[in-house]
Nucleic acid binder design. Structure first.
Lengths: 159, 159
DNA sequence: GAGAAATGCCTGCGTAGCGCAACTATTAAT
DNA sequence: ATTAATAGTTGCGCTACGCAGGCATTTCTC
């Protein structure tokens, strides 16, 4: 077995642990903030978008149905983290904007977590960081393709 | 701003997308298998352990309460994916073993997904793969520390 | 070695997120 | 002008989850 094969053999279980850790981490952050994991995921995604986002887009981003997305926005609005606003251009649509308070509450938690995270990366060279950045971007794209394929195969079951 | 700072500045939002993608991916796999995300997460963790695991250990691994872990094992057992067995050494304990059928069902899905994943890594050098392996191991450890800290801070709220 | 404390798992109950389907309001198509 | 499509909301049923209490078993303490 080549060195490369040995590395790949190790990477497979480790990446599964890695995935599991992320799920648990997301849950821990949610518990810490007294929120549901879905709400944390949603706010995370919202702050990555530029500008307000429609409820339908939130349903896409989170993978929820439109009804559940409405309830999700209800919860976030009730918690004072986002604000609803009718779109004047298309009065069917509702724009959801993240409020500064949400950024504060998230920022507070992520400052300390981000500091630890940055400390880990401090050990790495610029070339390694550049590789990591490229790898993450590729993996995000791969995830999207795989999610689409999984969903596509599901719908093929019921023609 | 140095090149290094620029890389770090890019890595932060990308890693957040990365995290979000993983959550969605987990959900997609669960939907595809007709299971709940928690159940998928549990089976993923179980297959990473060597040998049968107690219900209490499952509660630890998944972050659930003991009651919820019992229900989780109930579902997996009912689905024919795991088997319960009393521990003869300590008859309070229940050992949960993953059945071959679970490995088959998971293997089927993960073979194709793993192939795409391996294809992405094929572009990388051995040194890059070695770095990735090391990075993932460090990140898993970091997650554990951060999860413990988040949980610890929570418990400090109510002394 | 007997009673107390701790451990491991299970069960009843209330809460709440989610999908589904039906409904309203607005815009686009014919 | 009528019909169809789109965006969002709401009622309903299901089920995972936490919590608290309970039972069986083991370990501690005297």
């Amino acid at each position: 077995m080549t060195t490369r094969d040995a590395l790949m053999a190790q990477l497979w279980p480790v990446s599964r642990r890695y995935l599991a850790s992320y799920v648990l981490f997301n849950q821990a952050v949610a518990d810490h903030l007294g929120m549901h994991p879905t709400d944390v995921q949603c706010l995370n995604l919202l702050t990555l978008e530029d500008g307000p986002v429609t409820t339908g887009r939130i349903a896409e981003l989170t993978g929820l149905t439109s009804g559940s997305a409405t309830r999700l926005v209800d919860r976030l609005e009730k918690a004072g983290l986002v604000a609803r606003q009718r779109d004047d251009a298309d009065r069917r649509r509702v724009l959801v904007a993240v409020l500064p308070e949400a950024l504060e509450r998230f920022g507070e938690v992520w400052r300390s977590l981000g500091a630890d995270w940055a400390a880990v990366l401090d050990e790495d060279s610029e070339a390694e960081l550049a590789f990591l950045l490229r790898h993450m971007n590729r993996t995000v794209e791969l995830s999207h393709r795989q999610i689409a394929r999984l969903a596509g195969e599901d719908s093929q079951r019921l023609p």
